[in-house]
Amino acid sequence: HMTFVALYDYVASGETDLSFKKGERLQIVNNTEGDWALAHSLTTGRTGYIPSNYVAPSD
């Protein structure tokens, strides 16, 4: 899985969403939902949907 870094803070709007903080590292599990991606946080160990425009690929 590619690793991504959060560009902004995001507060989950539902139970299936994943909250994260700017700078948090995430792995995209499934990116077939258009503007949303299923992601796993390497920081918190949690998995949920995130807005895909809130993250960018990290080196």
Rank of each mutant, 00 (worst) to 15 (best):
R46I: 06
D17G: 15
S58F: 15
R25Y: 14
I28S: 01
I50W: 00
G23A: 03
K21I: 08
Y10Q: 01
L26P: 00
Q27N: 07
V11Y: 10
I50R: 00
D35E: 13
T3Q: 09
G14M: 08
A37K: 13
S13G: 09
S58N: 10
N31C: 15
T16L: 13
D59V: 13
E15C: 12
L26V: 04
L18Q: 03
L42P: 06
E33D: 13
G14K: 14
T16P: 05
L38Q: 03
L18I: 11
T3R: 06
F20S: 00
V55I: 13
S41N: 12
P51C: 05
A56K: 10
E15I: 10
F4W: 13
G34Q: 07
S19E: 05
N53L: 09
P57K: 10
F20I: 10
R46D: 05
I50K: 00
A39V: 13
S13A: 12
N31I: 14
T44G: 02
F20Y: 03
M2Q: 12
I28M: 08
W36I: 05
I50P: 00
D9T: 07
S13R: 13
S19H: 04
V5T: 09
T3H: 10
N31V: 13
N30W: 14
R46V: 05
V5M: 06
Y10E: 00
S13L: 12
I28D: 00
T3W: 14
D59M: 13
K21D: 05
D35T: 11
A12T: 04
G23W: 04
P57E: 09
K22P: 03
L42R: 03
L42C: 11
V11G: 04
H40I: 15
M2D: 09
Q27R: 14
G14F: 09
L7R: 05
E33N: 13
N31H: 13
Y49P: 02
T32G: 12
N30Q: 12
S41Q: 04
D9I: 04
I50S: 00
I28V: 08
N30I: 11
G48N: 01
R25H: 11
D59G: 12
A37I: 15
G23C: 07
V11W: 10
Q27C: 15
S52D: 03
G34K: 08
A12M: 04
F4P: 00
S13K: 13
H1E: 11
L26K: 00
T32P: 12
P57G: 08
P57N: 09
M2E: 09
T3L: 12
L38Y: 13
W36C: 08
T43I: 09
Y8E: 08
G34N: 08
P57I: 11
Y10P: 00
S52V: 15
F4T: 06
S58A: 14
T16H: 15
T47R: 08
Y49G: 01
S19I: 06
F20N: 00
T44Q: 06
F4C: 09
N30Y: 14
E15D: 13
G45A: 03
P51V: 01
R46H: 07
G14E: 08
L42E: 06
S41E: 01
T47L: 07
Y8S: 07
Y8D: 06
M2V: 11
K21A: 09
P51R: 05
Y8G: 04
T47E: 07
L26H: 00
A12G: 12
V55A: 07
T32H: 11
T32A: 12
L26Q: 00
H1A: 12
Y8C: 13
D9A: 05
T3C: 14
S19A: 07
N31W: 15
Y49S: 03
T16A: 12
H40Q: 11
S41L: 02
G34C: 09
S13N: 10
N30C: 15
W36K: 07
F4N: 01
E33M: 13
H40M: 14
Y10D: 00
L7W: 06
S41P: 00
T16D: 13
N53Q: 10
G34H: 08
E15P: 14
K22F: 05
A37Y: 15
V55N: 05
L7S: 05
H40G: 02
A39R: 00
A37N: 06
L26F: 15
A6D: 00
R25L: 15
R25Q: 10
G45H: 08
D9G: 04
S19D: 06
S19F: 05
G14V: 09
M2H: 12
Y49M: 10
Y8A: 08
S19L: 08
G45W: 03
P57Q: 10
E15W: 08
E33T: 13
G45D: 05
A37S: 11
A6M: 07
T32E: 10
P51T: 01
V11S: 09
V11F: 10
N31T: 12
T16Q: 13
V29Y: 12
G34I: 05
K21G: 06
P51W: 04
S41F: 03
S52F: 15
T43G: 05
M2S: 09
A6V: 11
W36P: 02
L18S: 03
E33Q: 12
Y8V: 08
S13Q: 14
L7D: 04
A12S: 08
E24P: 00
Y54C: 09
L7K: 06
P51F: 03
V29S: 08
G45I: 01
E15H: 10
T47M: 09
T32Y: 13
N31L: 14
R46G: 06
A6K: 00
M2P: 11
P57S: 09
S19R: 05
N53W: 14
V5F: 07
L26D: 00
K21R: 11
Y10I: 02
H40N: 06
A6R: 00
E15G: 08
T47P: 00
T3S: 08
G34D: 07
A6L: 05
V29D: 06
L38K: 04
D35G: 15
L7E: 06
Y8T: 07
L38T: 02
V55Y: 09
A12V: 04
A39P: 00
E15Y: 09
L18P: 06
M2R: 13
S52N: 09
G45Q: 05
A39T: 02
L18F: 09
K22Q: 07
D59I: 13
E33K: 12
G23N: 05
Y8N: 06
D59K: 09
V5A: 03
A37F: 15
E24W: 03
N31F: 15
I50G: 00
R25C: 14
H40R: 14
